[in-house]
């Protein structure tokens, strides 16, 4: 139990360090990306080059990803400060956001599903072995 806890703590520290590195790289190079997105690419690179074995971050990462939603709750509570804007422009804003979100999700989903299925059909014609 204690051993497991300290392994997770060390893994969280590694993820924290990669995130910090992402922000340092952004401030040095001025690339127009947020530090945490750069952090994703750094960690991916470390894993692919096997510099960092998967087992060194896997447990900590799976806990964070499982509870990713939690971190957005305090940020969402911040919407409380925009009550006035939504009272004055609420209906048009709601329509713009709901329509563009739903149509966007539908288009992305249907286009990729149709293309994925087409690709799978083609593959099955060539061989019967699943990938």
């Amino acid at each position: 139990m204690i051993k497991n806890g300290s392994i997770i703590a060390i893994q969280l520290a590694i993820l924290w360090a990669v995130n910090q590195l992402g922000y340092v790289i952004v401030s040095w190079t001025g690339i127009p990306l947020p530090g945490n997105v750069v952090g994703i690419f750094i960690l991916l690179l470390l894993l692919m080059t096997k510099i960092l074995p998967l087992s060194f971050v896997e447990k900590g990462a799976s806990i964070l990803v499982k509870h990713l939603g939690f971190f957005f709750i305090p940020i969402s509570v911040g919407l409380i400060a925009y009550g006035d804007l939504f009272l004055s422009h609420g209906i048009p804003l709601a329509i713009v956001i709901i329509v563009s979100v739903m149509v966007g999700i539908y288009v992305s989903g249907i286009v990729s599903q149709v293309l994925v299925e087409k690709k799978e059909k083609k593959k099955h014609e060539h061989s019967r072995n699943p990938a």
Partner: peptide, 8 residues
């Protein structure tokens, strides 16, 4: 931040 990085 670390949780976003963990998506890698």
């Amino acid at each position: 931040g670390p949780a976003t990085v963990a998506l890698a």
